[in-house]
Design a protein around this nucleic acid. Structure first.
Length: 119
RNA sequence: AUAGCGUAUCGGUCUAUCGCGGAGUAUGGGAAGAAAAAUCAUCGGUUUUAAUCCCCUACGACGAGGAAAGUCCGGGCAGCAUAGAGCACCACAGCGGUUAAUGACCGUCAGGCAGCAAUGUUUGGUCACUGGUACAGAGACGAGUCGCCUAUGGGCGGGUGAAACGACUACACUGUGGGCUGCAAUUCCAAGUAUACCAAUGUCAGAGCGCUGCUCGCGUAAGUUGGAGGGUAGGAAGCAAUAGAAGGCCGUAGCAAUACGCACCUCAAGAUUAAUGAUAGACACCGUUUUUUUCGGCACAGAACCCGGCUUAUAGAUACGCUAUUUUU
RNA sequence: GGUGCCAUCGUCUAUCGGUUAGGACAAGAGAUUUUCAUUCUCUAAAGCGGGGUUCGAUUCCCCGUGGCACUA
């Protein structure tokens, strides 16, 4: 099982992010909002962030982002079994900081929903 | 012992599993292939060696703070004529010293405020010229009201007010310093587009530009400005051991800040939609409890070219010096 | 990352260190009107937080909080 998370799986292009947020569909898996857009090229690329308006300190934003990244890294095999690829964006929407277990549970739920949704 | 003041130091550790950034290393794999040699044979092809470059794989030292924060000051560094002149403008201001430099720091003098004290905090150039000093008051610098005395020149007192010929103050003056802009500076590479359209202005009697408000001066020389549009928004250097205004220790000088010397020791993050992490367990510390166990807690906070200060946030721990109170000798 | 600016009634704003802190809109009360609107009169309502300078601070200085703009 591949649990790495190299740079090529991060969504970096400015244009791609723009099109993702303009044309992509979204749903909420508390405490995250997921925006997704099916694409043809491999690999699946992910954008993860926590907004400055909810967390004033950079420490809190970094911590939430790192927790979400770990949750995605450990559970991305749920999505990677299919031969379809996505541009994904996870952004944190709760005002409180949460435990890793809460976020991992939400991440599993979100990925399973994505995996079943495209069928 | 308790309470406090000052200066300085530290601000968790280890194990297991998984992951991220990463200078570099590899007789690992792949692609291109200068040059040389050999050969076929004719101006090219093939083979061998293979500098160099790129990608993948494996290994991989090391990997956030005392404030990384605020951006309040100063400097390095970079560009702008060679960084120029004058005015304007801005900052600072007891006295002496330190520093690369500062509005910082050290010593010290005087006043105010807080404290029993140790101590903390804050203010501090000049009034010759020019301007200002509300209300009240006769009068706020021009003089002169009421009462008393009087040699009629004037003197003393009352009252108003923060202040009444003695002043305070800046917009005034003196001294010192400051050229301006900032790493999104600046330089290079790659890719792409519109040398098209409209208006204004200008070509040596010179517009505009050269990052300073005005004047000058210097350089450059055919475009420039506005409108309406078109394209791009990628990479590298700057920028991370070629370390230095570095820190510690020791010695000397000094009350001190600090300077000089220097055997020894320490200091190796470098991302760019942005790494430095997650989970589980153990220990240390703090609280609760008679004790063990259990349970709970474990601060403030995240580099973005680099340094020196200041300010603000901060659970707790330690060292030294000093002050007050109490007790004992 | 860097640079600059702002904060005043519920809202938008004015201000020479000496105020009863002014104006407009909104709100409330009254008058006019058969009633409503318009109009008129009146009322209440504010200096972002904490220090300092000064006889006196919304104004000057320092620290903090929040917001905005510019800059490849």
């Amino acid at each position: 099982m591949n649990v790495t998370f190299p740079k090529s799986e991060k969504l970096c292009s400015d244009i791609a992010i723009d099109t993702l947020y303009k044309t992509g569909k979204k749903f909420v898996a508390w405490p995250m909002r997921v925006t997704y857009l099916p694409i043809t090229d491999a690999p699946t690329q992910v954008l993860i962030w926590a907004p400055k308006s909810l967390f004033k300190h950079a420490v809190d934003r970094n911590h939430m982002r790192r927790l979400m990244r770990e949750a995605y890294r450990l559970n991305k095999h749920i999505l990677c079994t299919e031969n379809k690829y996505y541009h994904l964006a996870f952004n944190y929407i709760d005002k409180q900081t949460q435990d890793f277990h809460v976020i991992e549970k939400a991440m599993k739920k979100a990925l399973q929903r994505l995996a079943t949704l495209e069928e």
